[in-house]
Design a binder for these strands. Structure first.
Lengths: 351, 351
DNA sequence: ATGAAAGCGCTAACAT
DNA sequence: ATGTTAGCGCTTTCAT
């Protein structure tokens, strides 16, 4: 296939393999400029490309990072995968893709497997509330970045969390809804157990309290399938639909509904329409995440944007931070500033 | 990290590394059952896991396949990535993810890079009309599957194409629209140059001709950004919006619009609404692909489903088919049966 | 039935 | 400034 080895280059350039290797690894100071040029042009002429497997075998560090997501079929994770891969590419890294399908056992197995493949950096988008099971791996030198998750008390030392500031994001949305004139606002989500759900709800409450508004209706739908009450794409939308239907047909229907994420918001929109009302007029609907779909949906969804590209780049960078092995160092969190995106699904309440 | 080598196992079990290796590679016939059991339990006790890099260095065949897509941020490719990874997992393979961002240079570079990393199997979702540039690699033993693309006259020998039957899919949709009573039906797409666009248009025409309907309006929007007139997600929707607006405000507006894919159909829906009409009543809109979004959109989109899961599994299987090296063998195509999915965006035309 | 040993392509001491 | 060389962990002849 490629066939050309470092030895071929060395011979053709009339130098030793060490010199070629030194050049390849940036130790250019150790040779004459003329030698360097000769070797460089030989590499080009021969079309030589280093063999990653051999390099990895020798150094123990593959030029590959692992990405474990619930499912890249979901646009939110798809966007992360895209931007993470782009960031990795700038440093010559590749991305190994793993879909956990929200199965904790599979998630754990993937991490173990990646580690024993020699991979030293993993971006993990876990469905698990606790990451204790990876603390041993981190102690052994694995760089682990938890994405879409904020720091927890029992986090393993050395874990880096990358997330949007959910509390502030939800607070922004709460303020937006209040400033529009809404007073009866409902919050819709699955069972509030996951970290970011809890935070979003807290931020939302804070905005309402500041405005002196009574505790809002909260509709939480118990998880049906998976153990921790998380849902897939379509299930999230269905959850929104069912929950909103209940709210809208109840005794004191809200004039605005804030859904825990865009998929759920879309389900809420459907329920509103099914009830014969218009989203953005009779009922305002807001989401969270700003997936591509939010812009394309009809009506275009008001939501809270996560700066995905920057977050992905930061996650990749965190993978490269020096492992410090200090058992006393603190877990780190990288919180990103969310942005309120006002579109057509929210408006002032009608009379 | 993992640290345990085949030598550790051999020593602990009191055998040689060859025996352990033989066991690992299924050559169990070459040892006594009792030896085998002893080694197997030692492997378990020690938690030994073979080092992929070393295995690859030795065999030249990594347990990794490459996937090159325009962008996993797009739900269509995200779905492929998800199912391909699932199929690969069943055989112990991992998937290396590459986003070409529809840049031909980047696409080519990725393929070259994967090959020189020793990867022997690639699923390529190319934006390029011709795949001639990879014929050399295929001759050298690369297994190359082109996804979402049907066979072409100048295809390199050994290339396997996996695709839905676009012609039949579009024909099904054409029949559906005709049977609903539509007579003035427009087709909307980007510049009709790509293979599957051409096929979809041809299938659509066939259905209309069979029904004795005059040649339909066709609105094709010239590509703006990339060389071959393809668009990204949001651009596809925008294309649909602009094209449909032109049709709807023209002299003889169609009662139904068939878009080349779901994203474009969504843009068409927006234009319909912007024109003060209701999708699924005044104007029927149909798409193609059946991305997740189609089901969630409002109204739910009538479209043509591609059996993604089966197609991904087939693509992975094709990667394993024996390379035959026979320069006389024909390029192969795997065509999948599309399925008409009727939802709410199409209906009989009003008076 | 089992073992010994030669590399796969590369990096990094350690020479010179 | 450049070269020599010993492995990294594994598979696979070739012996025994």
């Amino acid at each position: 296939m490629a066939g050309i080895t470092i030895l071929d280059v060395a011979r053709a350039a009339g130098v030793s393999t060490s010199t070629v290797s030194n050049l390849l690894n940036g130790r250019t100071g150790r040779m004459l400029p003329e030698t360097r040029e000769r070797v460089e042009s030989t590499i080009r002429d021969l079309g030589y490309r280093p063999n990653r497997a051999a390099r990895q075998l020798r150094t123990g560090k593959p030029q590959v990072i692992g990405l474990v997501v619930p499912s890249v079929g979901n646009p939110y994770w798809g966007a992360l995968a895209r931007y993470l891969e782009a960031a990795a590419l700038t440093e010559g890294y590749h991305v190994l893709l793993c879909n956990s399908e929200r199965d904790p056992a599979r998630e754990r197995q993937y991490v173990d497997e990646l580690v024993s493949d020699g991979i030293r950096g993993i971006v993990l988008c876990s469905s698990l509330p606790s990451l204790e099971h990876v603390s041993g791996l981190i102690e052994d030198g694995l760089r682990l970045v938890a994405f879409d998750r904020t720091a927890q008390a029992d986090d393993p030392v050395g874990l880096v969390n990358v997330s949007v500031d959910n509390t502030i994001g939800a607070e922004l949305m709460g303020e937006h809804l209040v400033s529009l004139g809404h007073r009866r606002i409902a919050f819709v989500s699955g069972a509030i157990r996951s970290v970011n759900r809890t935070e979003r709800f807290a931020g939302f409450l804070r905005a309402l309290e500041r405005a002196g508004i009574a505790r809002p209706d909260v509709v939480t739908w118990p998880g049906s399938s998976s153990a921790d009450g998380t849902f897939g794409d379509v299930e999230a939308a269905e959850l929104g639909r069912v929950a909103a239907t209940e709210l809208l047909t109840g005794p004191n229907p809200p004039s605005a509904i804030f859904a825990v994420n865009d998929m759920t918001a879309i389900g809420v929109c459907r329920a509103v329409r099914d009830a014969g009302m218009e989203v953005g007029r009779e009922v305002s609907v807001a989401g969270f995440d700003d997936i591509v779909l939010a812009e394309l949906y009809s009506p275009r969804l008001t939501t809270v944007r996560q700066p995905m590209k920057e977050m992905a780049a930061a996650a990749f960078r965190a993978l490269h931070a020096p492992a410090d092995g200090q058992p006393t160092s603190q877990a780190t969190s990288l919180l990103f500033r969310p942005e309120l995106v006002v579109r057509d699904s929210t408006a002032a309440p009608v009379a």
